[in-house]
Design a protein around this nucleic acid. Structure first.
Length: 592
RNA sequence: GGCCCUGUAGUUCAACGGAUAGAAUAAGAGUUUCCUAAACUUUAGAUCUAAGUUCGAUUCUUAGCAGGGCUACCA
């Protein structure tokens, strides 16, 4: 049984016997560093039940607990706080339990629990992935891992925006100006190549607009009548009609892009269980809307368009079908959500990893699905995250102010290489091993930098100020891991048995307390869809370990029991670092 | 205008309504005959404003102020 549960029970019993009063719950918190004790009971809340001096009440309860709970070795009262000192034996006992548990903190998949589908990345086949996508991917991938660690089956998915007028723009530009350029002929990554033609289209379009304006047209009209735009629209009509040539080109160019995306995903270390394509889902949802219309959930306006009235929920009216009967984004999302449940009958909820600019959209989507009566609609979450902005503002791909995902990863790896070479600790490593390590460290810095921040907050990224490798960073944590592995390599004695009788050093005690928090942190992170909690926990753990490492000899401990116990403790800390960094999608190195 | 998110050291991040608001970085001072100094120890430095609820507010409520976003028969 959990120690908190035991204490809570005893406090309730003690309260009854001292004051003859009933209390419902006991409020715990970790004892602050500057006070003696391990766990603290907040006395203030009891004042509602028994009037009196909090210090006196605390002292009474403390005395009772010390007499009746063997794990409590001492106590002190400061103001309204009862600090309890727990015995070393309790800690040794608890930590021994997790030493032998390989999967401590990670719950196995529970067949009783419904699966969760997590959507992330969701790229547009016109644009190479950029820093914003990196945040999206890292968040989505990490949250998938975290939910899986909380005992639920997870499906990772993305919806690929592979159709529409914007796709036709790059196709058209390639047709007009491409001269048959292919990734093979140019040596460009497929997504970059296609992205270039998207930019090319925009340039030509702007030129034409200027020409039209020069001929006396208003800007508004010019924007609508530029020949190249009309041509793109024509192409879209052909695409929708299934025109052979257009479809063939579309297929060809999209596959260049997918190949490029795969490379980026690979480098980033993310993966998906399946993909959805907008070209296959964009017609979904209409029948659901018609059905909902009949059931009175939606209403039709005079012009024939279909809407939902959400004013009772504090929102607006929202269109779900155009007057010409065609679908809007919302229609498609309704249809896709339902389709996903059909495709995977074990799903009980979904997480959408999408930027906070779409907060409103998802609020509406979830409400609509709810009104349509789907039970799983109560279990939909929008993992909303802040934009990644540059000092000069938003990233705009058409204006070339984007931080490209591939470039950024390369740059991080290069920096890691520089630092490593300067420190020169890698004798005996082959060239391949070194390159792999630089990559691990560079990506570790990047991923940690992004994931340690609360998803809701926007990130300001200044390319001129490179991401740190010292302090609260990925490499700092990786370094600690590498150090621990070094100890393990050197520990050539048998430490595979349980130590029971030992006096704990204060630093050891702090470290053990931190280790024991891990499983709770994982659950919290899953609940709040926040990898930042895992990142910050890992940092705290590592901080405590480094402090312990610095002031307590491990392999050099004179007492054999201490030596064994500290080695075990180090090994476990290493395992937890690996475990939690795994949840973040970050690798750890054996040396660095 | 309406709605949503965010305001914490110079900067980047923390803090289930709890004690003296924690870290990192930048600035200052230290620690290598010893398990990896990408480390450790240490000094200084912050809750946007005003009311309210509470024994207690960075946290909750209201009103401001600042930054960002949404508010399309675009996706």
């Amino acid at each position: 049984m959990n120690i908190k549960t035991i204490i809570e029970k005893e406090v309730i019993k003690g309260f009854k016997s001292i004051y003859n009063a009933d209390i419902q719950t006991v409020e715990f918190q970790a004892t602050r560093k500057d006070f003696e004790g391990d766990i603290t009971i907040v006395i203030f809340s009891f004042l509602r039940i028994v009037r009196g001096n909090p210090v006196e009440i605390g002292t009474n309860i403390g005395t009772y607990l010390k007499d009746n709970v063997k794990e409590i070795s001492n106590f002190n009262v400061v103001k309204g706080f009862l600090n309890l000192v727990l015995s070393d034996n309790l800690y040794i006992h608890e930590v021994n339990k997790i030493f032998s548990d390989q999967n401590y903190g990670i719950l196995p998949s529970d067949p009783e629990e419904k699966a969760i589908m997590v959507e992330f990345s969701s790229p547009n086949t016109n644009k190479p992935l950029h820093l914003g996508h990196i945040r999206n991917n890292l968040l989505g991938y990490s949250v998938s891992n975290i939910i899986a660690a909380s005992g639920k089956k997870v499906y990772k998915t993305q919806i690929i925006n592979d159709r529409g007028i914007h796709i036709c723009k790059s196709m058209l530009a390639w047709n007009k100006f491409g001269k048959g350029e292919t990734p093979e002929s140019s040596g460009l990554k497929g997504d970059k190549l296609v992205g270039n033609y998207y930019v090319k289209f925009d340039q030509e379009y702007k030129k034409e607009i200027e020409q039209l304006i020069a001929r006396g047209l208003s800007e508004e009209v010019a924007k609508k009548q530029a020949p190249i735009l009309l041509e793109a629209q024509e192409m879209l009509v052909k695409w929708e009609a299934g025109d052979k040539d257009v479809i063939a080109l579309w297929y060809r160019m999209n596959h260049w892009v997918y190949k490029g995306f795969d490379e980026t995903y690979n480098a980033l270390g993310v993966s998906f269980d399946n993909n959805y394509y907008e070209s296959k889902t964009y017609l979904l949802g209409k029948d659901v809307v018609i059905d909902g219309l009949e059931r009175g959930i939606f209403f039709r306006k005079n012009d024939g368009s279909v809407w939902i009235d959400l004013t009772d929920e504090g929102l607006d009216e929202k269109i779900v079908l155009r007057s010409d009967g065609t679908a809007v984004y919302m229609t498609q999302d309704i249809g896709t959500a339902i389709q996903r449940i059909k495709d995977h009958t074990d799903i009980g909820g979904m997480v959408y990893t999408v930027g906070n600019e779409q907060d409103y959209h998802f609020k509406v989507l979830f409400l609509i699905l709810n009104k349509l009566g789907y039970t799983w609609a109560n279990n939909l979450h929008h993992l909303s995250y802040g934009m990644v902005d540059l000092p000069e503002g938003k990233m705009k791909s058409r204006e070339g102010t984007v931080v490209d995902a591939d470039d950024l990863m390369t740059e991080m790896t290069r920096t890691a290489k520089e630092i490593s070479q300067e420190l020169g600790k890698l004798e005996g490593y082959s060239k391949e091993e070194k390159e792999k390590l630089y990559n691990t460290i560079g990506l570790g810095a990047l991923k940690y930098y992004i994931l340690k921040v609360d998803p809701k907050k926007r990130i300001l990224f200044d390319p001129k100020e490179s991401i740190d490798f010292n302090g609260n960073t990925g490499p700092f944590i990786q370094y600690t891991y590498a150090r621990i592995q070094s100890i393990i390599r050197k520990a050539n004695f048998d430490y595979n048995f349980e130590i029971k009788d030992i006096v704990l050093h204060p630093k050891e005690k702090t470290l053990i307390k931190q280790l024991l928090n891990f499983s709770e942190i994982v659950q919290n992170a899953a609940q709040s869809l926040s990898p930042a909690l895992i990142a910050n926990y890992t940092y705290d753990l590592v901080k405590d370990y480094n402090s312990f490492y610095q002031s307590v000899p491990i392999l050099g401990a004179e007492n054999q029991n201490e030596k064994v116990f500290r080695t075990q403790l180090s090994k476990k800390v290493g395992a937890i670092i690996k475990q939690s960094f795994g949840l973040l999608g970050i690798d750890v190195p054996d040396r660095m």
